[in-house]
Design a protein around this nucleic acid. Sequence first.
DNA 1: CTTTGTGAAATTATTCACAGCA
DNA 2: TGCTGTGAATAATTTCACAAAG
Lengths: 229, 229
Amino acid sequence: MGLHSVHMPGRTRIPKPTAQRLSLYLRELNGRSTDKRPTVSSKQLGAAVGLTDTQVRKDLACFGQFGRPGVGYDVASLRERLREIVGTHRQWRAAVVGIGNIGRALLSYRRFREEGFEIVAIFDQAPGLVGTRTGGLTVQPLTKLREVIQREGVSIGVIAVPPEAAQEVANALVAAGVRGLLNFAPRRLDLKTGVPTVDVDFTGALEKLAFEVGETNSNRLLVRKGKRS
Amino acid sequence: MGLHSVHMPGRTRIPKPTAQRLSLYLRELNGRSTDKRPTVSSKQLGAAVGLTDTQVRKDLACFGQFGRPGVGYDVASLRERLREIVGTHRQWRAAVVGIGNIGRALLSYRRFREEGFEIVAIFDQAPGLVGTRTGGLTVQPLTKLREVIQREGVSIGVIAVPPEAAQEVANALVAAGVRGLLNFAPRRLDLKTGVPTVDVDFTGALEKLAFEVGETNSNRLLVRKGKRS
DNA sequence: CTTTGTGAAATTATTCACAGCA
DNA sequence: TGCTGTGAATAATTTCACAAAG
């Protein structure tokens, strides 16, 4: 099988949808006891996350071949492999900027740590908050952002400030050296540099839901196609 | 122009990516003062949300024609139109189940109400929480879920419970009559019926980010394509 | 018989290119 | 000129179908 595929280090581009699905697979694999069923087939894995078997195989095939025909994938080793690919195998040091409702919720969200993301610094602008302690950390003023980010070796910045402040905070974080941003502010961030950003937009999610509810429930009267007035 | 397109009420299917982008357009339009610049071109709108002008036009064209050649789109009326399409023009009554960190953050998230989503009931299982008040609402026990949902006319259920409980809560909400689910629990929900679900997955977002950071930063050593061992 | 990995086909989404209106 | 709306072309993604392996 390996006889003729001598293309070693020229990895093929990963389709965006595939990258998205990686965390679904990982989540499912993490939830599986490796004892009772040491292997999983693409069909089982697909069913668990709501995809076809073919889709699962195509996705995994982007990263190499680690299944065994007639058997399936070894749960433990596939999990390890995916962890490496996603990057959860290493420890990520993160900073949260904005200690409002969302910021606080993130601080006490246990799961982050379990997946390798450790929040090591928190910032806020409000004089009333600076200096107080939350979740074992002291709220730092924004003026110390650069200093703290660099001292603590933070590589992931989490933006939980109001939308008006988001771009400015993003700029500061990038200037301080973070390598990726998780953005909870409902606005688009412009980053010239190649700093990846992932948006989490509650309102957007609700709107998507409202739209789908509208679509499923009444496919009438929603839109009248054609010129109006 | 309308001379030969007599297909009135048979609306064309909306591509999923288009549906996703609707909330981006809406967000941008909401942020525009309608006074100084009453119109916006597809190019401007696209630039604001990070898309091409063609993409914007194609998306909007799914719902009809409301731009004017040489001029652009009237901000106010496009906004209204999009609100109708997305469903934000009407009021949505929502219930939050699970008053932990995330649940509480959602309760004080002002923007929901601004977009037409009103939280009118909250539930939790913990005896210590039931009966306490948060954000003007009294925490109800899960045993009263059906009764309260129906009495309050709730149509959107928000799931903010631990993943183990999520499926059960989802079933109960659907049985009680909600028409859509917003799921913050990191697991997939199985709904036989056509009840749309939108997932918000913090950890998934962080993993997506970790993956992208890994991709941009070091395109070496991440993956060795080919059989291993 | 089961299940992987993968080209080829089908489907879906984006971009191009341009006619037509203001 | 500036801009929309839209078919046609291109690109991306998913699904099919099957050879090869356990």
